[in-house]
């Protein structure tokens, strides 16, 4: 192939450049992670494995676990909220309903993360939209604490990841053979049974890839937990930021980054093998 079409190499050049830069950066992080921290200086000292032993403290493990937990919650809730939207988006009979849903679900992608997070702060704060509404309706006396909680962070992250989830699910739903649904109805399946036994299983690949993508994406979330968590909810990127840019302990920040990377890759591999097995069992594909 390459010999018959030499221009392929030219086409590969951008990928090669990107890969080389990425590898160099990763190597640099790896290099920093085994250096001594010199307090009060941005320069690093000699070789040491102390950073890795320091990791082994409950506080850091908790942040890592919390990151997993928030990512998983985000993926699951994003799935639950996105599926009906994606379904309506694909199956709506009227064109204008479809275009409306497409623009409503895609436009958030075009507003920056900071802008979206800031809007959520306005919504969730103690004098925010939600609390003032609830108070005006006399449903609560004291404002609910949503800002600076996991709940608040997850709410914002779910909204942040829904466009991607919707796109992935809509693709899967649009690939379902409508004749299969008709055949099921013809064989006596009620609309509910058609959904649970035909449509849902046939969209499982989309569901699984949606969960994997949103999970991985949320693992590296930074500004949303930073602003809405306000230091009270720490995800791994916030910890890296804290160490690297507040304490200026670059070696330890590098070590944490490395751990986060390994954890993310590990969980992706695990998920991939689980979903692969599930898909095989259901014989889709």
């Amino acid at each position: 192939m390459i010999q018959r079409r030499p221009f392929f190499i030219t086409f590969l050049a951008p990928a090669v450049v990107t890969a080389v830069i990425l590898a160099a950066a990763l190597f640099e992080v790896l290099q920093y992670s085994v250096r001594e921290f010199v307090p009060g200086s941005l320069n690093v000292g000699g070789f040491t494995l102390d950073n890795f032993t320091r990791i082994n403290r409950p506080i850091y493990w908790w942040v890592l676990l919390d990151t997993f937990y928030i990512s998983l919650l985000t993926a699951v809730f994003s799935l639950l909220l996105s599926y009906p939207v994606a379904f309506a988006l694909v199956r709506a009979k009227r064109d204008w309903v479809r275009s409306l849903l497409v623009s409503l679900s895609i436009t958030p992608l075009f507003t920056g993360e900071i802008v979206r997070t800031f809007s959520w702060m306005l919504m969730l704060g103690s004098d925010g939209f939600i609390n003032s509404m609830l108070r005006k309706l006399s449903l609560i006396d004291m404002p609910l604490q949503i800002m600076y909680t996991r709940l608040g962070v997850v709410v914002a992250l779910v909204q942040f990841s829904m466009p991607v989830m919707i796109i992935l699910l809509a693709t899967a739903i649009s690939h379902v053979d409508r004749d299969c649904e008709k055949a099921a109805a013809n064989l006596g399946a009620s609309p509910g049974a058609v959904f649970w036994r035909i449509t849902l299983p046939l969209t499982l690949p989309g569901i699984l890839s949606g969960i994997v993508v949103v999970f991985a994406w949320t693992m590296s979330a930074f500004s949303t937990p930073q602003l809405i968590g306000g230091g009270k909810v720490l995800m791994i990127s916030n910890l890296v930021y804290l160490q690297g840019f507040s304490v200026l302990n670059l070696p330890f920040a590098a070590t944490l980054s490395l751990i986060a990377l390994i954890a993310a890759l590990g969980s992706l591999v695990l998920m991939k093998s689980l979903t692969g097995r599930l898909e095989k069992r259901l014989a889709i594909g």
């Binding site: 004749d179 299969c180 055949a183 064989l187 299983p201 889709i284």
Partner: peptide
């Protein structure tokens, strides 16, 4: 009962 042109067998 109906047999579809595409057969519409359930792939899963």
């Amino acid at each position: 009962g109906m047999v579809f042109q595409s057969y519409a067998l359930f792939p899963h």
